[in-house]
């Protein structure tokens, strides 16, 4: 009889309706739960993702980094014949600063948006989602790596720009702050766009549009832009990186204003990376 009742119990479990199904478990789970393997901690995981992403440059990214640099250098050569006031004028500073930050926009915003868009569309996010890794580690590791990809191109563009337009090299060390902060702002934006776009093509499109906006509104001197477009320029995070770098070319830079511009980059970076992390979490588990 006891065996029969046990059998009946098992049957009841096996045929449980969805509504009732949780009950047998709720009883069984607490006592016999196995130990969970530890989760990866944020910083080591971030380091691992960063290193892995950086290694991708060797395989897939180097041609694109060349494209980013050639594009910016080409724009500077073109603009050299166009800008009023010739070398050393405010227009020259805008062109060099804008072209330099454009490298960051191309790689960190455009390419990262495409990468996350593609990863999401192809199911590649499953790999990370089935590992016990904090979402912030994946997003920050990838964003950091893409921002790092921009370093050689940004430096090359800035140096060539200074040579072309006879601007002072002395304050180029400001790039040490501009690249990471503009990189954070733009890669955060790129990651968020790539993860939020409902389709891969849209992620690519948004990335391209963002880069085009950074190109047009960053390279052209602000004074020459019509009023409403000037407001759009103010809304673009890359603008503040451009402004900060342009100020560094002054004989006596306004350091306070420069720090103000960089703070905007930092704030946008913090917000956009937080949004990207949220978007990753949302995309990884449906």
């Amino acid at each position: 009889m006891s065996v029969a009742s046990a059998g009946a119990e098992m049957n009841a479990v096996a045929q449980a309706t969805p509504g009732r199904a949780a009950e047998p478990y709720a009883v069984g789970t607490a006592e016999a739960a196995a130990a969970l393997a530890p989760s990866a901690r944020l910083l080591p995981a971030l380091g691992a993702v960063y290193r892995a992403q950086l290694s991708r440059a060797k395989v897939a990214r180097i041609p694109l980094l060349f494209v980013a640099t050639f594009q910016s250098v080409g724009i500077m050569v073109l603009m050299r014949g166009v800008v009023d006031g010739g070398s050393q004028g405010p227009a020259a500073r805008s062109v060099v600063a804008g072209s330099t930050v454009l490298v960051v926009a191309f790689v960190a915003l455009n390419l990262l948006a495409q990468y996350f868009g593609q990863l999401r569309a192809s199911g590649g996010l499953d790999h990370y989602a089935t590992l016990p890794v904090p979402p912030a580690a994946v997003v920050l590791g990838a964003a950091g790596a893409y921002a790092s990809f921009t370093v050689p191109g940004t430096l090359a563009t800035a140096v060539m720009g200074c040579a072309l337009f006879q601007l002072p090299f002395a304050n180029l060390w400001v790039l040490a702050a501009v690249i990471p902060l503009a990189g954070a702002a733009l890669s955060g934006l790129g990651a968020a766009l790539g993860l939020l776009a409902p389709r891969q093509e849209l992620a690519t499109l948004f990335g391209q549009l963002g880069m085009s906006a950074a190109l047009l509104l960053g390279v052209l001197p602000a004074a020459n832009l019509p009023g409403p477009i000037g407001y759009v320029r103010d809304l673009l995070p890359s603008t503040y990186g451009v402004e900060a770098l342009a100020r560094a070319f002054d004989a006596h830079p306004d350091w306070l204003a420069l720090c103000g511009d960089l703070s905007v980059c930092a704030a946008v970076g913090a917000v956009s990376l937080a949004v990207a992390t949220w978007a990753y979490r949302r995309a990884a588990c449906r």
């Binding site: 990866a40 080591p44 691992a48 993702v49 290193r51 590649g124 499953d126 790999h127």
Partner: peptide, 20 residues
């Protein structure tokens, strides 16, 4: 796709690191 552009060794090592 998440591992495609990594080397075989780095893919295995990174995955292990992300497993804690």
């Amino acid at each position: 796709t998440a591992l495609d552009e990594l080397t075989v060794g780095l893919a295995a090592e990174t995955t292990g690191r992300l497993r804690g």
